[in-house]
Amino acid sequence: MNKIAFLFPGQGTQYEGMLDDLPQTTLTSSLLERAQNRLGHDPLLLDDKEHINTSVGTQLSLFIKGVVLEAHLEEEKIYPHVVAGHSIGSFAAAVAAKVLSFEDGLHIVKKRAELMDNVGGEDYGMGVIVGVNKEKLVHIVASVHSETTPVYIANENAEDQYTVSGKRIGIEVVLEKARKQGASKAKFLNMTVPSHCPLMNDVGKTLFGELEKCTISDPAVPFIGNKRARPLQTGSAVKEDLAFNVSHPVLWHNCSTIMKELGVKLFVEMAPGHVLVDLIKRKYPEGHFFPLSSFSLDDVLFLVKKYKSK
């Protein structure tokens, strides 16, 4: 039987009204009611024009959408053998793995977003670089980084795709140097938060303290951690990864390798977007990829049932 991975995307895939196309079912209504009770307001307001580009609106919308879609797959007896999320996506993955309750996840995700906003501002941000290998990028970043221009390699998404994080003044120089050294893309991301770098160390420490107050269970299926790109089998290991992935690079390229080594052949990515399956497909073209942003829920249910027994 082919193994199935459930994937949960990170920030950058959000859009206004992204919660409007959730399945119109009793299960959706129940989960949205639980979210309203925990948050104290209608969760469907999170993705409106006013809120979707805030950290709180974006991160909670992604979390809620991922949990709701995954719950519908489980309702149809489609269960993952492995779960993985990119950055904020890790929290929905933790709910899917039965590590964290939906309610605790809502609290932690909101807290995470608020703490991140306290670090960020117009002087900070992130950039993406494509077409430069890691060795070359390490050299570029080292030549720019200083106390006044802190800049770090953040996420390692593919062999030739990285993000950098820190002060915009430093990132701008890194992007320019990368272009001169052959990068096919080097541009700022639409973010004012320096995620996945040491500037977020205090956020990680505070989040760990908040997670200590939550009920944490051992994962029902392997949870692929962001920090070390390893399958985590204990609740304490997942808790540590959830808290500190904000201050460490997401090693998504290595996560993809681990999933392949675990025998995963079916990849279901929760909406919105299809970034994660696109990255995996580049190195694992023989897999089967079903992003819920491109397929209907019914189509994914049919295709997964068709391929999982082959």
Rank of each mutant, 00 (worst) to 15 (best):
I4T: 15
I4D: 09
I4Q: 09
L7Y: 08
G10H: 06
Q11F: 01
Q11Y: 09
G12M: 13
Q14M: 14
G17M: 12
G17N: 03
M18K: 11
D21E: 10
P23H: 08
P23V: 07
T25S: 15
T28K: 05
S30N: 15
Q36V: 00
G40R: 03
D42V: 10
P43R: 13
L46C: 10
D47K: 03
K49L: 14
I52A: 02
N53P: 05
N53F: 05
S55L: 11
V56Q: 03
V56L: 00
Q59Y: 02
F63R: 09
F63L: 04
G66C: 02
V67W: 08
V67H: 07
V68W: 10
L69T: 12
H72L: 06
E74H: 15
E74W: 06
E74M: 11
E75M: 09
I78Q: 07
I78L: 11
I78H: 10
H81R: 12
A84W: 05
A84G: 01
G85L: 05
G85E: 01
S90L: 09
F91D: 01
A93Y: 08
V99P: 04
L100F: 05
S101I: 06
E103C: 00
H107W: 04
R112D: 00
A113W: 08
A113V: 02
A113R: 13
M116A: 11
M116K: 01
V119Q: 07
E122M: 13
G125R: 14
V132Q: 10
K136F: 01
V138T: 11
I140T: 10
V141F: 13
V144L: 00
H145K: 11
H145R: 10
H145G: 00
T148P: 01
V151W: 09
Y152V: 12
I153S: 00
A154S: 02
A158Y: 02
E159A: 12
Q161P: 04
Y162H: 06
Y162N: 07
T163Y: 00
T163V: 10
V164T: 09
V164Y: 06
S165Y: 03
S165T: 00
S165A: 06
G170F: 05
E172I: 10
V173K: 15
V173S: 01
L175M: 13
A178Y: 01
R179Y: 01
G182M: 02
K185R: 15
K187I: 14
F188W: 09
V193R: 10
S195G: 13
T206M: 08
G209H: 12
G209K: 15
G209P: 00
L211H: 09
L211N: 07
L211M: 12
E212L: 14
E212R: 09
K213G: 06
K213D: 14
P222Y: 04
F223V: 03
R228S: 15
S236H: 14
V238W: 03
V238E: 12
K239G: 03
K239I: 07
E240S: 11
A243M: 03
F244G: 00
V250H: 06
W252L: 11
W252V: 10
S256H: 11
I258V: 15
E261C: 03
L262E: 12
V264M: 02
L266T: 13
L266P: 03
E269N: 10
G273Q: 13
G273M: 05
H274L: 08
H274W: 08
R282Q: 15
S293I: 05
S294K: 14
S296H: 03
L301Y: 06
F302V: 02
V304I: 13
K306F: 13
